[in-house]
Design a protein around this nucleic acid. Sequence first.
DNA 1: GTGGTCTAGACCACA
DNA 2: GTGGTCTAGACCACG
Lengths: 139, 139, 139, 139
Amino acid sequence: MILSLDLGSEIPIYQQIRDQVVVAVATGELAEGSALPSTRQLAGDLGINFHTVNKAYDLLRREGLLLLTRKSGAVVRRDPHSGPPEGGFAEEWAGRLRTLLAEAAAQGLDGPTVLAACTTTVNGFRAGQTATDDEGGVR
Amino acid sequence: MILSLDLGSEIPIYQQIRDQVVVAVATGELAEGSALPSTRQLAGDLGINFHTVNKAYDLLRREGLLLLTRKSGAVVRRDPHSGPPEGGFAEEWAGRLRTLLAEAAAQGLDGPTVLAACTTTVNGFRAGQTATDDEGGVR
Amino acid sequence: MILSLDLGSEIPIYQQIRDQVVVAVATGELAEGSALPSTRQLAGDLGINFHTVNKAYDLLRREGLLLLTRKSGAVVRRDPHSGPPEGGFAEEWAGRLRTLLAEAAAQGLDGPTVLAACTTTVNGFRAGQTATDDEGGVR
Amino acid sequence: MILSLDLGSEIPIYQQIRDQVVVAVATGELAEGSALPSTRQLAGDLGINFHTVNKAYDLLRREGLLLLTRKSGAVVRRDPHSGPPEGGFAEEWAGRLRTLLAEAAAQGLDGPTVLAACTTTVNGFRAGQTATDDEGGVR
DNA sequence: GTGGTCTAGACCACA
DNA sequence: GTGGTCTAGACCACG
């Protein structure tokens, strides 16, 4: 697993780390149960302070994606969320989705293009979550 | 057009304004050519500093959504973007989309649910960009 | 509102702050809508680092008790939780309750005494949440 | 008696063990006079370091719940605490109770619900400390 | 002015 | 060794 940081970006470093881990878990690139580098290890590799990594890991733990143990470091949880997400998340998330899609529309991307991007992205996630399309799925 | 601000949100106020305008334009709630309140007017209504509104308007102008003139105030542009978006936007946007969708997956929303949300949202935008869920739809 | 910290306690300072704010809100000592000192202000008063206060405030915000704004500082939320708590909290909380009550039993406190303490404590919270007892409530 | 550990919890393992033993003794699931597995035995079963088990047992011994002998291993004391608890415990415990109950209130659990949970929990403890919810109960 | 982020270095508890 | 806490000081974005 390789993280590519953009120091100097307006997006906080700790959130870049968190985002990339989330995506990696969703795509299956980061298998459940696999271990991540320790905070200080990763901080050293990335050339940043371990507190920054700490914050990212802490975020991921709160979201239920990471298991932080004092002996084995950080491990991707096997059962992030068995059932549907907690109350309130879906609404909050839908709002963000609406904003993001509207942004695309405002910049000239038409509906079909946007939906194609959504489908492709979702189909890129780990199996068991294939799209509604036909049996061919990703195409 | 009614703006609902969440003071105390981690999202900056100016961005909340900008986001809601973007969505309103996409859905057609805010027709092209229609005028927005003046910065001082809106700031007064919302009970915030007019500099904040100014920043939001300026953002929208730079994104090509708003036309700021000294006499007519802020007007929604008639031709926001006829062609495809400028270089780099699509990639940057796709990255954000991937992160957002991965987040949903991580919280337990399955693929079909996520795609349904995408479709519904896009279909809610103004005509000319609609895409139904029949076979022609997602491509 | 006065916070009494026990530096050198095994309980982290940021959690002491958080706990006392939670209790103060529950008892009504800290009215909803009232403002707390700014992070740096409180840190100065308590003689601790502002990062520590920051962490406590951040915790309280995540729990929905505090509203952190960049202009007014920290404000107690008016509507912490309108409905029942999010899924999972009740179970997790019940587990902690069981441990705490068992601890009392282990140290020789008998059932009635423990329940009396519970009733008294709950009745000490802000109105609208009086106990099941008879109309006299507190005994 | 079965211990269920949550490695990766923010609660130290040794305390999880200690907590569950305390609860088991309170409910009577672990009868007074019964023996617990040896430290190495339990450590092996749980797949953890025996030092960790050692620490938990030592804690329980200091709290007066366990009797550690070189020949019989760990045995639940027959007379944990005949009289009232030692000075200082009640106050310290009441403080923790207040914090815990306030937390529930802050998350939207109302008074009656909280008290019902308390009553149910206490009634689940071993006989001699029962207290029903009739008029004699809470006092 | 506010909160938020990042860095740096120290110390501690857990395993 | 791990993560967690606290301190200290710098800089930035928001309002």
